[in-house]
Each structure stands twice: as structure tokens, then as C-alpha cells.
Simulated scan of single mutants.
Amino acid sequence: MTDDPFVVHRSLLFTVAYEMLGSAADAEDVLQESWLRWAGVDQAQVRDPRSYLVRTVTRQALNRLRSLSRSREEYVGEWLPEPLLTTPDVAEDVELAESVSIAMLTVLETLGPTERAVFVLREIFELPYGEIAEATGKSAAAVRQIARRAREHVAARRPRVQVSPSEQQAVVERFLAALRTGQLQRLMEVMAPDVVLIADGGGLASAARVPIHGAELVASLLARPDREVSTVWLNGAPAGRIEADGRLAAVSLVVEGGRITHIYAMANPRKLTRLEEPAELAR
């Protein structure tokens, strides 16, 4: 068993990169670049390997995020994060599960690169302002201001109602059961009247290119009996895996007040490669 700090902290480093990028593939690229830099330093001179590695990954993720901004602007239809298969125990760390949820990652996508880095490092990983300043190339005072703005931005956009894991799972199971049967009325009963469906096909799979609003319209789009629907754990929460006509989709759901308020449907096949092996996440 190795005691190389990079290997010891790999799950943490992957989680930092993934939360900054919303893409497991890009996060893995960032880890590879960071490992090459780590291999080239005199590790005996590094006093705190964990902090050093988090800073290195943050810098590489910021570089990647800035280079990705144009391609995401040109993306076909809505852009959603790449879903990760997770084990149910990820949900036991409530803060971790919330931070990697598809809903939260979608909100983080509305932040600028530096704001996103500061928010992730401060609010999720609780790094000191001085370390964040070093990682982002800003002063500690500037980081404090950025963190406050980012907190307000996220608070205004994230789902506000918290539900217990048992209630979340019960509502998700009802929704998936209605999907299996394709019964329009059952689907409408489990969704909030103002439910929003956001789908990501990336131009590679059939998907609505703009958000769809309202239970009746969303239900009419989803009500198809000829599909296989199974329950999986994605990004720390119960979710759906759907197969129809040889095509795969992952569905993440937000529950408020006992009903589904947001549906995130990921159908871009390039984003569905992480649904077989659970990701190792850590804070």
C-alpha cells in the first residue's frame, strides 16, 4: 500500500476538480496534469501535501474551466453536468451529497471560474481564505468579497426546501414507477404543477433544447411505456436510469413539498460513461 500523498488524497482531489468542472472526464484530465506537476517537485520540501495538492488541482481546474467556457457557450441545447454513479453511503454526508448534486452543479455553472473555485473551496471544503488566495492568485481580502458574492448568488438559485433522505427516496420511487407504466395521470400527481424539465442531449441524442415548464407538458413528454426504468444512486441521491430503443439516459430529481420540482435528464452519451462503477468522492 502506497503512502504517496497524491494517492492518499486522490478521492478528495477528484471531488474538488469535479465540483469545479461538472465533468468527470475533465476532472480526470486535471488530476493527470496535477500528478505530473507533483511528480516534478521536491516533495520533501512540501510541509502540507494535502493543501499543496488541493492548490495545484484548483489552479489546473481553473485553467481548464476558462478554456471550456467557449465550448460550453456553443453547446447544442442545455448543458448539464456529467452524472456519477455513487454508493448510498455518500448520502450520509449530507453536505457532500448536496455539493455534488446535479442541482447544485447546475447552479455552480452560472458562476464565473474564479467565483466557482472560491465557493467550492470555502463553502464545501472549508479552506482558509489565505489558502484559497494562493490557489486562485487573488488577495485574501478579494477572496472574502468573492466568497460573499458567490454565496449570495448560489443561495438565490439553489432549491430551498430540504427533505429527508427517506422522503426523497419515496417520491423518486413513485416518479420512476409512474415512468415505468407510462401513465400520464400518475406522472402528473407526483410532479409539482410548475415542474421544470431540463434535458441535455448535446446534439447527440434526442432531447428538448430549452427547459420545459408545467406538469401537463412534462408528463406528456415523459409518458411512454416502452422503456426500462431502474433506480440508481447518482451524485449522492436516488435517481433514475432509463433505457429505451437502445439509448440510455440518467434522470436526477429535486423533491420539494413531497413532489418533483426539477427534472434533470442527461442523455448525451458522452456524459453517461460513469454509470457502471461508483465514483470515490471525499471532502
Rank of each mutant, 00 (worst) to 15 (best):
K138Y: 15
D26L: 14
M20T: 04
A244L: 06
V57I: 03
L62M: 14
M104A: 13
A177F: 10
L187Y: 03
E152C: 03
V90D: 06
G77L: 02
R59H: 06
M266F: 05
Y52L: 07
Q169T: 09
P211W: 12
S164Y: 02
L96M: 02
A282G: 10
E167K: 02
V30E: 06
V90W: 00
A205W: 02
V41N: 01
L253C: 09
Y264T: 06
V41M: 00
L111H: 00
D3G: 09
E189L: 08
A24P: 03
R122C: 01
T87Q: 14
L248A: 09
R70Y: 14
L184G: 02
R148H: 13
V195E: 08
A199L: 05
E126Y: 04
Q169P: 01
L108D: 08
V143N: 07
A267T: 12
A44F: 09
L217K: 14
I146N: 02
G137Y: 03
V57L: 07
E19W: 05
D42Y: 05
R144H: 12
A150L: 05
V54W: 04
T86Q: 01
V196P: 01
P211Q: 04
F175M: 10
E98Q: 01
A103Y: 10
P165W: 00
V229R: 04
R70D: 13
Y264A: 02
E82L: 10
S67M: 12
Q168S: 03
E256Q: 13
V163F: 01
V76T: 13
G203V: 11
P88R: 09
T181K: 15
K138T: 07
S252W: 00
G77T: 08
T87W: 02
G77I: 11
K138P: 00
G214W: 10
V94L: 12
A103E: 13
V163Y: 04
M1R: 08
S51W: 05
S206R: 15
P88I: 03
L221K: 13
V171Q: 02
T273I: 12
S11A: 15
I102S: 13
R186E: 15
Q32T: 15
R144D: 07
L31G: 07
E98K: 00
F119T: 04
T106L: 05
R149Q: 12
S220M: 12
R50D: 01
A117I: 06
H153P: 00
A250K: 08
A170C: 00
T231A: 11
L197G: 11
M20K: 05
S99E: 00
R55E: 15
T273N: 10
V210W: 00
T2G: 12
P128Q: 03
G137Q: 02
T231G: 04
M104P: 01
E173G: 02
W35G: 04
A223E: 06
T15H: 06
E19F: 01
I198F: 06
R116H: 12
V196S: 06
R10E: 14
W38V: 10
R116M: 11
A142N: 08
R283K: 14
E216Y: 12
Y18F: 15
Y52K: 00
R72Q: 13
P225F: 09
V161F: 08
A25L: 07
G203M: 10
A265K: 15
A27K: 09
V196Q: 03
R274T: 09
L197P: 07
E167T: 12
E276T: 14
T261A: 01
P128F: 05
V254H: 11
R50A: 09
L234C: 00
Q145N: 12
E277K: 13
T86D: 01
T58Q: 08
A103D: 14
I242P: 04
S51Y: 06
